[in-house]
Amino acid sequence: MKSREKWCWSHTTPILLKAGDSVKGRIYTFTIVTAVLGFMVAVQFQSTKEVEVRDTRNIMELQQALTSEKERQQELNEEIKKQLEHLSQLQQGGDVEEVMASAMEELKYRAGLTEVSGPGVILEISPVFDENFDGGPIRSVPPYLLRMLINELNINGASEIAIASQRVVSTSAIREANGVTLINSSRVTQFPLKVRVITDDPERLHYAMMSSSSREMFSYENLSLESSTVTELVLPAYDKPMRVRHMELIKEDS
């Protein structure tokens, strides 16, 4: 054995140590290093931990949320009441067929499969040509404008909408193919384009649309949007087959 080295007993196994290097010192070194490592790991863990999402809404926003939830609750309650009425009618054993037929009629109305009439607003979209006009001919109204218009109409209380002769229902597609706008897969190219809207308060909708941002957006595309109120409007029914993709018929055990 060399003179510089001596045997020393560690805890379990004999370990060769060099002179001037005690087990204690070695352990302390390891302790310091592991402590630093632990600190770094802990800090890293805390830093990469996801920040908890806090509710930062103020009273106004909370009240609005509460109101909208209450409204929704009321709607649901009304729905329940209606369904219960249906049920009791059916249970009383009156004319089941008639009840079913009326329920189906109601559903058809809500899906937009029936003609509807009522007071409303007619919006006319027509091209404007001024001296500064450049760009190609305007063939149809761009779909994004129509989508924006529909959103704005719905915000302002529209109940039923038809663009040209096409009724807008919940599954209506407004898209563009070869520079031509299609609604419900039908070409919508005529000008002026008439958008007929049935609403409970035509006056209000009329003024809302006259000061709407979509009117401004239409003007950027060299299109003008004119609105007028009508006391009686008839909207066509949705005439294309309904495409139901995410619903399935459940057969009840008989």
Binding site: F30, T31, A35, G38, M40, A42, V43, F45
Partner: peptide
Amino acid sequence: LPVMGLLIGILLGLFTEFR
């Protein structure tokens, strides 16, 4: 001792609010 050191380091890192 090294294991204790590791634990102490982790606790220190968790409780010092160092980010």
